[in-house]
Design a protein around this nucleic acid. Structure first.
Lengths: 230, 230
DNA sequence: GTCTATAACACGATAGAC
DNA sequence: GTCTATCGTGTTATAGAC
């Protein structure tokens, strides 16, 4: 009985902590969306959430960590938003195009904020860097989406290339995102054009790999990739 | 006579200002190199240069502007360091490889600092962004190097592709630099490997463009590039 | 126009009490 | 887990000297 009570106390304490953690995060994201990352101060987040600055730092080691948490959230949303498409569509081009378009939709509310996000992500020393060890789980989850894009499709490519393809497609997405961050056109039309034209191009390129003369270049490329992996 | 004297005074004043400007910059760069960007304070730069903080801000609007000045300097050094190679070597692969290797050499002392630099550069709102209007002169100068790489070489590619090639090679360099920033291997060996293998691959790829089946993909690619330009 | 000296402000981050 | 007080730093402001 005493044990049970003790457990209950611990549980409720943990639950309360979790509640505070989420309150701080959701408040921060709202303010980021409303006023941008730069103009949102840690003081404002704390005040708005009804906690102290010190408490905010108790849960999130830095302002950047709040951004990191947002990134994880975004990835989660993208994964579930893409579920239906990957279950129904079988052709490579609409699969890949759909995945990229869905990303645009999910990330849209944070387009301006995303600039600051990638600013931090570009720093090799930052745990938010897409190439850092800390973000490996998030990166693996992202690559996993493209593994499913490839596996569930009608794509016919050599086995060795197919194995590297998910990571290469993820890299393509990184490029699209980089373009998107800098895209200030109405309704990010230029990014949409990029997706609409780049994916069929990739598809065409992949079909070419069966031509003997092209095959050698692909082998070289795969060798290059292998040689620069850490 | 009075005019001459007046001019002299103005000139010497300007010269003195220029001297102070350079003193501040060189001091800042030395401290950045020695202790990193983050740990170098504006107060330290001013003290070390023997000027007041206010004076440092008189010449450089912000700490980031000092980084911007470094970038311009780097580009200048790269351009002159590459001069001899471009004058003597005629084959595409050694030309391109040499240009990229030279960049590594010129930038080497600032490898760690470069992380912070690209962090700032990745922000679309920053004037340091390689895609911003403010950095257009610097970008044009960089692309110009690759225009010379192409023009002075024995490369045989279709005219429409050749026209876009300098910008594409510059983009390749951006990729190499991004890789380099994240490369913590001894003597950046992985980046060297990337250059050594990627350039011949590009060369091979460019030769393939004469195959009819491949030609169509190139046309598509050029169309894509054209359609997403602002 | 160039420069000094000093104070002040805002913000990210931390220390230490409770 | 939570708070208040405080620090260090980028940046700005003031008020003037040469």
């Amino acid at each position: 009985m005493e044990v049970t009570t003790l457990t209950d106390v611990t549980d409720s304490a943990t639950a309360k902590g979790e509640q505070t953690r989420e309150l701080i995060l959701s408040t921060a994201l709202r303010l980021f969306r409303e006023q941008g990352y730069g103009k949102t101060t840690m003081r404002a987040i704390a005040t708005e959430a009804g906690v102290s600055v010190g408490n905010a730092y108790y849960y999130y080691g830095s302002k950047d960590h709040l951004m990191q948490a947002y990134y994880d959230l975004l990835q989660d949303q993208h994964r579930s938003a893409v579920e239906e498409l990957l279950a129904s569509e079988k052709a490579f081009v609409p699969r890949m195009t759909g995945v990229l378009r869905t990303w645009l939709e999910v990330a849209a509310p944070y387009h301006e904020f995303a600039g600051t996000f990638f600013k931090t992500a570009a720093d090799p020393k930052s745990p938010l860097s897409p190439f850092s060890d800390e973000s490996r789980p998030a990166r693996d989850a992202a690559v996993e989406i493209f593994r499913r894009v490839v596996e569930g499709s009608d794509l016919k490519v050599p086995a060795d290339l197919r194995a590297e393809l998910p990571e290469l497609l993820w890299l393509l997405q990184m490029g699209v995102v980089l373009f998107w961050v800098h895209d200030s056109s109405e309704d990010v039309r230029r990014t949409r054009t990029l997706i609409n034209r780049a994916v069929p191009l990739v598809d065409r390129l992949l079909r070419l790999t069966r031509i003997p003369g092209v095959r050698g270049v692909v082998t070289d490329l795969l060798g290059l990739i292998h040689s620069i992996k850490p």
